[in-house]
Structure formats: C-alpha cells, structure tokens
C-alpha cells in the first residue's frame, strides 16, 4: 500500500498524541514480580519432565535382566571401538558405565543447576 508521507505522518502524530509513558516503573515492577513467580515454577516443571523417565529407566535396568545386559553389551561395544581407535588404553567396561551414569546424572541435575547458577 502506497503511503502518503505527510498525511501519514500527520495521522501518526494524531494517533500517538502525547500518550505518556505513565506508571512505567509500576508496570515493569508488577511484571517483574509475575515473571519471578513463573521462574519459581519452572524448575519444578523441569524435574517433573525428567524425573519420571529417569526413574522408569533405573527401575527397568535393576529389574529387567535383558535391559541390564543390553547396557553391558553397549558398554563392551564402546570399549571395543575406543580400543580400536587406540584411545584410553586402560579403559574397561566399568569406566564406560561410570561415564554413562555421570552423563545421566548431569542431564537430570541440569534444571536444578540452572536454578542455582
């Protein structure tokens, strides 16, 4: 749409008028308070999202032999690949399992860490 500059500017000035930025501090303060409350609810939502899945996986590993054997097989495969690449000569399955556990704990702890850092 082609705009007629002078008429449009006149209309813009008229519409904007001198609407003042009234109570800006009050507005932003009230908003900040509401956003704080939103933030306070967020970590709980993060945990709620991660925790059930993490617990289900842990229960599955403990109770289901095949799942545990699958994890062991995956760890052995990682050890083989690492050995084939010639890295970490002393790496064994226990280290891979410990590393995997550390990664899982890190992912689960991330929402909490984000809250405190």
């Amino acid at each position: 749409m082609k705009k007629n500059k002078s008429n449009d500017e006149r209309l813009r000035d008229l519409l904007r008028g001198d609407v003042p930025d009234v109570e800006r501090d009050f507005f932003e303060g009230r908003l900040r308070h509401k956003l704080d409350r939103v933030d306070a609810c967020r970590p709980a939502r993060g945990w709620a999202r991660w925790l059930p899945g993490g617990l289900a996986a842990a229960v599955l590993l403990v109770c289901h032999r095949q799942a545990w054997e699958g994890v062991l097989a995956l760890s052995r495969w990682v050890v083989e690949v690492v050995g084939w690449l010639g890295l970490f000569g002393s790496l064994d399955v226990r280290w891979v399992l410990a590393g995997g556990l550390a990664v899982v704990c890190g992912v689960l702890a991330y929402p909490l860490a984000k809250r405190w850092l």
């Binding site: 519409l15 800006r24 956003l35």
Partner: peptide, 28 residues
C-alpha cells in the same frame, strides 16, 4: 517494547487499566 505495546492496547481498548493488564498478559 512496553511503551509501543501499551500505547497500541490503550488505543485499541480505550481503557488504561485493561490495556496494562493485557500488556502484562502478553509479556508473560
């Protein structure tokens, strides 16, 4: 962006408290 948004909602509604409530809702 608060001033332009509040100004737009104020002209749209003609009601300053309502415009500010809608602007707060928008930002949240």
């Amino acid at each position: 962006h608060a001033l332009p948004l509040r100004r737009y909602l104020l002209r749209l509604t003609g009601d300053p408290p309502l415009a500010d409530d809608l602007a707060q809702e928008t930002f949240i």
